[in-house]
């Protein structure tokens, strides 16, 4: 098996023509079909870029998604979208609202997954937003409790995961960036993830970020996925010290560049980060990627950050291949 496989978390920056097209579509000046063609064009570019850079596990870049919860809310029965609420400063968004029983009417992510996978021999990850995050980032006017809401989302996300698997996805990522916001709810988040992943044959992954991981670690290791995708670069690899105290029992996709910073990390910096990680993790356990989705970066920044990741992973992989294997019995 190739050590230190490289991947990315999910979203890519939208090319300018797609941003303009989405605005026109919002004003009904562009048809859904015309927008769809441009989304495919952008997806081709995202796949081509990842192939050119030599990443191992690819993503479709989420060119057809605006926000990671609204994208699903818009397609699910029982959900609406709120008026404007503020995100920060002068930035506003529309928040999903659960208004009735949540039901899936049709596959939501499968067509774009299939399209992206048809463009490459390398595996493309299926990408879903987890039940806990869907709940935490929506208003709820229907279910009596947060737990009921979380479990209802789990059911529809399970259906979607099965469809992705049926369509050929070997990797299914269920993002839970909100997971660390209420540590006391970790057990119900875990219960919900069981509904989503139990019995799936695809490798399951969950990404989380902006986290106070120390409040949910090591309990987080109970989350029923095979791989956790976690940020390390933007908090100076504090995660490594946590793992030093309590061993990490899953695979990890380690964020080694900051997705929210314009600055491009140097190869040496990233290599040093991977070295730090390998003090507490076995190389077979580790994948390498950015901290988070790259949608807030420019196309050039995204490209350069991913290029550094690939170079750094290549260098460390080389070092590891030269290192004599430690004798098994001593």
């Amino acid at each position: 098996m190739k050590l230190l496989q490289t991947t990315s978390v999910g979203s890519f920056p939208k090319p300018d023509y797609l941003v303009s097209a989405r605005n026109l579509y919002a004003k009904s000046q562009l048809s859904r079909e015309e927008l769809g063609e441009l989304e495919k064009k952008a997806t081709r570019e995202v796949i081509a870029l990842q192939e050119r850079l030599g990443l191992d596990i690819l993503v479709d870049g989420e060119m057809e998604r605006g926000d990671m919860t609204a994208f699903f809310a818009e397609q699910l029965e029982g959900m609406g979208i709120s008026g404007l609420v503020r995100s920060y400063g002068n930035r506003y968004y529309r928040k999903p609202i659960v208004v009735g029983p949540i039901r899936r009417v049709k596959p939501m992510t499968v067509p774009m997954y299939q399209f992206a996978q048809s463009l490459t021999e390398k595996p493309v990850k299926g990408m879903l937003t987890g039940p806990y995050t869907m709940t935490d980032w929506s208003f709820n006017e229907h279910y009596p409790s947060r737990r009921d809401t979380i479990l209802a989302f789990a059911q529809v996300i399970r259906e979607e995961a099965e469809d992705l698997q049926r369509a050929g996805a070997r990797y299914i990522q269920i993002d839970e960036p909100a997971l660390s916001t209420r540590p006391d709810e970790l057990p119900v988040a875990i219960e919900a993830m069981h509904i989503v992943t139990d019995g799936l044959k695809a490798k399951t992954i969950s990404h989380m970020c902006y986290g106070d991981f120390d409040t949910i670690y090591p309990g987080l290791l109970e989350l029923p996925v095979q791989q956790l995708d976690l940020e390390a670069a933007n908090n100076d690899f504090a995660l490594i010290e946590l793992i030093r105290k309590h061993p990490f029992t899953k695979e990890i996709a380690l964020g080694v560049v900051d997705s929210h910073d314009h600055r491009i990390e140097t190869k040496d910096e990233v290599v040093a980060g991977i070295h730090r990680a390998l003090e507490v993790l076995r190389p077979e356990q580790v994948w390498i990627d950015p901290d988070c989705g790259l949608k807030t970066r420019s196309w050039q920044e995204a490209e350069r950050k991913l290029a550094v990741i690939v170079e750094a992973a290549n260098q460390v992989r080389e070092e590891l291949s030269k290192k004599p294997k430690p004798a098994k019995a001593r």
Partner: peptide, 28 residues
């Protein structure tokens, strides 16, 4: 912009830093 920044801007010795998630809210 948030609960802290108006005060931060009027303090010597403090400056607004990067965006973080605000408690259990999907805002920063």
């Amino acid at each position: 912009d948030d609960l802290l920044t108006p005060i931060t801007r009027q303090l010597d010795g403090a400056k607004p830093g990067g965006l973080l998630r605000y408690f259990d809210n999907n805002v920063y």
